[in-house]
Simulated assay, not measured.
Amino acid sequence: MTHIDELASLGTSTWLDDLSRDRIRTGNLQEVIDTKSIVGVTTNPAIFAAAMSKGTAYDEQIAALKADKAALDEAVYAMTIDDVREACDLFTDIYRDTDGRDGRVSIEVDPRISADRDATLSQAKELWKKVDRPNVMIKIPATQDSLPAITDALAEGISVNVTLIFSVARYREVIAAYREGVRRAQENGHDVSGIHSVASFFVSRLDTEVDRRLEEIGTEQALALRGKAGVANARRAYAVFQDIGRSDLPEGANVQRPLWASTGVKNPEYPATMYVTELAGPDTVNTMPEATIDAVLEQGGLHGDTLNGTVDEAQQVFEDLVAVGVDLEDVFAVLEREGVDKFVSAWQELLDSMATQLQ
């Protein structure tokens, strides 16, 4: 049993936060599944931008798309959809053996349209149809403008990865959006037992922003709180999940599991496995870059369920942050805005690169 298997026994599924055609075609992704107990994959515009800007794996398809005079957006999505479809096929057995909880591969809607409810829903439906695999998840950001589109997509029977969640207040809205979506899906005649969703909390980014502010404050009390906000925030979210995340769902509907994202540490002074060992517990997912997966495999450090029974300690951290002068509402607003901007920038970088290659 590996440490990733041990993590699974605690209730946390490990997904790989990376995908590329090289990984798929060389057999590397299958090897990671077989040897590192990975049971899913997440992607985002930055991951695809990095994948398509390196090597020659996409050259043949780019040449074909160029010959067909494909539009820029069409070309980019043609390649990402092919990658996601092939990855879904590699996870088919896991998807079947876990009744759809795992074996999932995520693909994100165009971040530039996140404020447009109708456009987001339209693209979610198009991606769902074109990937044409039951184990795909469509990623939609949890911005205020996108929440109705999340509900709409779920109501169409689409499994959704709700991404870019930072605050517990927004998470409560995500839970409400999920409940309403699966309720409408049932009314629309869909089998809700086949609809799955995760709510993706970004962890390390919160520490990066809060630590920066704590260092600006500079007092002994402030500096002592560095590296504590991310875990505390996730634990507070998990307490909300335990309190209301399982209730008021239609009969047969699945719970929307919390997913810990951005779990590679940004500060090298912190343990590489910090956002894994301190966030292990039932009904959760942790999507990790491969370096973090390797660190867990090598170092372990798991010490049981670190989510249940931790909310009081986590709440105290937040009270202490406020006491030393951290404006948490502003932190969450900045991180959400920057999160969308980063995905838009990565997507634009990908489009610009592809435009050059198609020319």
Rank of each mutant, 00 (worst) to 15 (best):
K228H: 07
Y238C: 12
S345D: 15
V168E: 14
V39N: 12
R183L: 10
R117F: 03
G245S: 08
S159G: 10
S13L: 10
Q186H: 01
P289E: 10
E329W: 07
A280W: 08
Q242E: 15
A67D: 15
E108A: 08
V265A: 03
R104T: 04
A8L: 11
Q30C: 04
T273D: 11
Q357D: 12
R104L: 08
E290H: 03
I24Q: 03
V285A: 03
R172S: 10
E187S: 01
K342H: 13
L297W: 10
R104D: 05
G100T: 08
P134V: 10
D248C: 08
D89G: 12
E156M: 11
D211T: 11
R183F: 06
Q315K: 11
N233L: 06
A87Q: 04
E336F: 08
P271I: 00
R235M: 10
T12C: 11
D97S: 15
Q316W: 14
L10C: 04
K139T: 02
L358Y: 13
G11N: 11
M354A: 02
I24K: 01
D110F: 07
R25G: 00
P250L: 06
L147P: 02
P289T: 13
D118N: 13
T277E: 07
K125S: 14
E173Y: 07
E313D: 15
D34F: 13
R212I: 00
